[in-house]
Design a protein around this nucleic acid. Structure first.
Lengths: 187, 187
DNA sequence: CGCCGAGTTGAACTGAATCAAGAAACGTGG
DNA sequence: CCACGTTTCTTGATTCAGTTCAACTCGGCG
């Protein structure tokens, strides 16, 4: 919990009272490896702060899994689009390892936004961060070849590249596992 | 101005007083066709609400222009990533026609966020909208071929497809003008 | 031990890029 | 208002990055 407070405080410092109110809507949850945090077709009710373990976010397109994100500990996981719109999600979030997380619900968060300007600000900053991540990915897809995208990912996040399976990593890069395997050989 | 207020009110209704404070930081600006709202290398200081005309947002990658967004009237234009981070942008925003817009600066907006919870909320909602748009684009790139992406864009926004030049549209779809020309022929 | 999923490699194929040339549209100045 | 140069769009021929399909290897685990 302290860790989560520190994370949020880097976005916008909270008073002890604000933190008390926020922490009252947070609940700890655990998942076994391969468990689902959310499945396609459901409406996302939560944002998860992962304290231990790893989560993969993916969608299924005609029987084929495509990874959209890998969440390591000390980061947020959610089918965020669905969380924001209230529409059923096309995404599934699955634990890649045993996972411990802290989660809070949309309903409680919206109520907190009404009460607390600071909470609203943190909500804004989280959305802005999420936007920045997506934009950087958009630019990569538009400007770089598969090989270049792999190279950039390797630079930016070597741990991710080492940790995630070829299959999942390939779909995240928008290519087939065979292609990623060849790209790796050629380096 | 009324139009902008209505737009913002759909996100979160404001009192007259809140609107008065917001509108005091808004200034009208005009651009001739081909003028730049912001150029690559600069830090984006503004968000523009376009009331008349069209704006193209693009980046230059090794001498090649790649379009990231087309903003029609009644929408926001900005090198938003740079606006958020304060870092120089790689994007350029150029008027595709004569343009009228209302703009407000980052400095003034941040000050307003401090004063007004409602402003902060609107800021959050705008960031969330921007995130949703990028996510939908990410999913399209990961799941669809060039032909399918064109088809989807045609469905979602036929006016855009009719209005924007082949060259610009192609780069937005992540393909070459020749390919787009062929895709169009085959439909 | 033998199976099974994950990764690698090869060969053929395909969607889109590239290069080159011609046709149409555009605006600028006489 | 026309004539000219310039940019934009289209079409064809070729090349290339990445896919697909198939076979093989390897390590883990019952």
């Amino acid at each position: 919990m302290d860790e989560l407070r520190q994370w949020l405080d880097t976005l916008s410092p909270q008073t002890d009272d604000e933190w008390r109110r926020f922490s009252s809507i947070v609940e700890p949850v655990t998942y076994d490896k391969n468990d689902f945090l959310i499945q396609a077709g459901q409406v996302e009710k939560y944002i998860y702060y992962v304290t231990e373990g790893m989560v993969r976010l993916f969608l299924n397109d005609n029987g084929k899994d495509i990874s959209l994100d890998f969440i390591f500990s000390h980061n947020f996981a959610s089918a965020y689009s669905s969380f924001l719109t209230g529409q059923p999600t096309q995404f599934t979030a699955q634990a890649l390892t045993d996972v411990r997380a802290l989660r809070f619900s949309r309903t409680n968060l919206l109520a907190l936004y009404d009460q607390s300007h600071t909470a609203e600000r943190i909500g804004r900053l989280i959305a802005e961060q999420a936007f920045l991540r997506k934009t950087s990915r958009e630019v990569q897809f538009l400007t770089s070849s598969a090989k270049q995208r792999y190279g950039q990912l390797l630079e930016q996040n070597p741990v991710l590249v080492q940790t995630i399976s070829v299959r999942h990593l390939a779909s995240y890069l928008g290519i087939e596992p065979e292609s990623l395997s060849r790209i790796r050989r050629d380096i």
